[in-house]
Design a protein around this nucleic acid. Structure first.
Lengths: 356, 356
DNA sequence: TAGGGTTCGGTAAGCGCTTACCGGTAAGCG
DNA sequence: CGCTTACCGGTAAGCGCTTACCGAACCCTA
């Protein structure tokens, strides 16, 4: 529905060429560092550009080059109200986006950011619109169905985050498996906790599934009593974690010795709920998180968690996308290493060095 | 109909036209809702588009229309490490950006986001690069000098946030004056505090200057003892606020009855520092903020502050930019109303209704 | 000084899309 | 039944930029 049609008296390379007394080809060559212009030609062009504050039009370049130098990022944001509890999720996404942005700028790309509401019906439409304006897309967790991804991927390269690669799209994720493995080992073997629970994230998230699967397998193998399932279902948010604990306690359920949360944010909610009931962490119940968001080390007690290199995750996603845009076939399923960060919420009195 | 060549990204309206058995002009007209295509023509085009998952190339459209349907947003982000203290500033910017984004989507625009580091030297270069890829730019507080703004504004329309309009650029800001006026009145007249201090934000910020100016004038007019200046200089961050208080206390300075902080974030730091020294808020010292970030109501005591409609600020900025892009001359200096939000940190025991 | 090899730089052909313009066809009318 | 009027839809001309291609100018050597 765009009403406007005619842009302002915008400058073109013709203006620059005229002013510099050369041809448009020379202007373009100087600006692109192509060929070997004579120093004087070069100088005259640059001066004209400077004097006119000329900037080449991106769309024209894109059309000519077949490269827009823009990648799109799509993610979900909460609804209207922002609660304190939601800060972390804000950060989680923002830190990743920051990684994408940093790497993009390094390569001369810009980033088209688009958030869609949790309840937005027309995600596909949104994403398709962005596809037309970009060279490639990075989709955060759970943005589109496999069919949707395939459709979009037929237009531009697509990289998903914390998802699963499809024949058409690539994926970048963290190594949930070994992170959870190390965490369970620490709790069940090192601390000898006999009963452990897994407070899940959103059920449909690949990350959550992977974490749950390993948790269950490893904790069982180590001989611990396991609690998980419907009554332990969170949604990655602090509020979700808190309400699970509250319901459990209200129902008179005895808590396990350790609670493994699907995310740091969940752990924050859990610790909050526990504190309200006078249950001590880690003396009565140990709690662990997953992600290592910045605030994790400032909680009381400092949170034992698994650090995901979030900024790198973003950077890597761009990198993978970029190489694909450049026609290089990269690894369609990149897995980044995570690191167990032992602090005090697990019961370690003398925390291991933080590494920072 | 035989399956067309599966050349990725190579789909053009020619392919669609061929498949639909019409001309490219018809395809374009259908896609743009121009003219009065015969229902059958329309249907065939739409079917072909659907079957091919065709999406028009943005740069080609932009080049032809003279409209990219993209606006750029530039803002500053902290450096590598993210401290807990920085969350608020993250939010402040993010909420504004969210407002920009929402309004943009409503108009079919996308948003190119670019953050630059605080120490980045080449902001102008970054911004110029974005200018070429967008129809207009929104610059957050203190991104560019007046000269830089003029230069960029000669390429695309520019709207600054919380700045001052220039002959070439427009500006959108909140009504600091009446906000501060109401705040001072509440403290000095309603609460009868005899001494008040202004803990400033970054010195070079127009917002800060405006707030300081009104604070000084109004508090003096009301007969209160004023404290401000070098030893009361913060930088909008929580850490900045805390360290001002710490220095003052370390130097043995007696605190005034009320401290007006340049931002909520600063107030958070101040209340933190005060609590550490055992000074009670608001019994010993009243503290107020400015912004009303979401967390303000959750502080203890709940923070009395001035609410800035941040999301609206962003939406309005886009709106102003959009009308300018559309060739409509809008108000070059939009001022949004703020609202005094009285909670408890000012000394009100029975807080007025929050309004939420 | 003329011929051959180099450079430089200009001309023009697109990139994919929108749309002004115009020819062809069908519907309306006498 | 033939002519006028509408209406569709096709053709082609750009939008601003990059670059292949080619001619002009210059430098060197003999």
């Amino acid at each position: 529905m765009p009403e406007p049609k005619k842009a302002k008296g915008a400058l073109t390379i013709y203006d620059v060429a005229t002013r510099a007394g050369v041809s448009i080809a020379s202007v373009s060559r100087v600006l692109n560092g192509q060929g070997t212009p004579r120093p004087e030609t070069r100088e005259r062009v640059l001066r004209a550009v400077r004097e006119l504050s000329f900037v080449r039009d991106g769309s024209a370049r894109a059309l000519s080059n077949g490269l827009k130098e823009v990648v799109g990022v799509v993610f979900r944001r909460g609804d209207e109200t922002l609660f304190e509890d939601e800060y972390e999720s804000f950060l989680y996404i923002d830190v990743i986006n920051r990684g994408i942005e940093g790497e993009s700028h390094r390569r001369g790309f810009d980033v088209l950011m688009s958030s869609v509401a949790f309840n937005d019906e027309n995600v596909l439409q949104r994403v398709a619109a962005m596809a037309g304006k970009t060279d490639g897309l990075i989709l955060h967790d759970r943005m589109l169905s496999a069919v949707g991804i395939a459709q979009v991927a037929s237009i531009v390269p697509v990289v998903t985050l914390a998802g699963t690669p499809t024949p058409e799209s690539m994926n970048v994720r963290c190594d949930n498996e070994s992170g959870m493995r190390a965490l369970v080992r620490h709790l069940v073997i090192d601390h000898r906790y006999k009963s452990v629970a897994y407070l899940s994230g959103r059920g449909d998230s690949p990350d959550n599934r992977a974490r749950a699967r390993i948790f269950e397998a490893d904790a069982a193998a180590a001989g611990a009593k396991i609690e998980m399932g419907p009554s332990w279902e969170g949604n990655y948010s602090a509020a979700g974690g808190a309400s699970v604990i509250a319901s459990l306690l209200d129902a008179g359920t005895a808590l396990p010795r350790a609670i493994v949360c699907a995310s740091d944010q969940t752990a924050i909610g859990v610790m909050h709920a526990l504190a309200q009931r006078g249950i001590r962490v880690p003396q009565d119940v140990a709690v662990t998180g997953f992600d290592d968001v910045p605030v994790a080390r400032h909680l009381r007690p400092p949170l034992t968690t698994v650090r995901q290199p979030m900024q790198e995750l973003g950077a890597k996603a761009f990198e993978v996308l970029h190489s694909r845009i450049s026609g290089v076939a990269g690894d369609p399923d990149v897995v980044l290493p995570v690191q167990l960060v032992v602090r005090e919420s697990c019961g370690c009195a003398q925390p291991a060095r933080d590494g920072e």
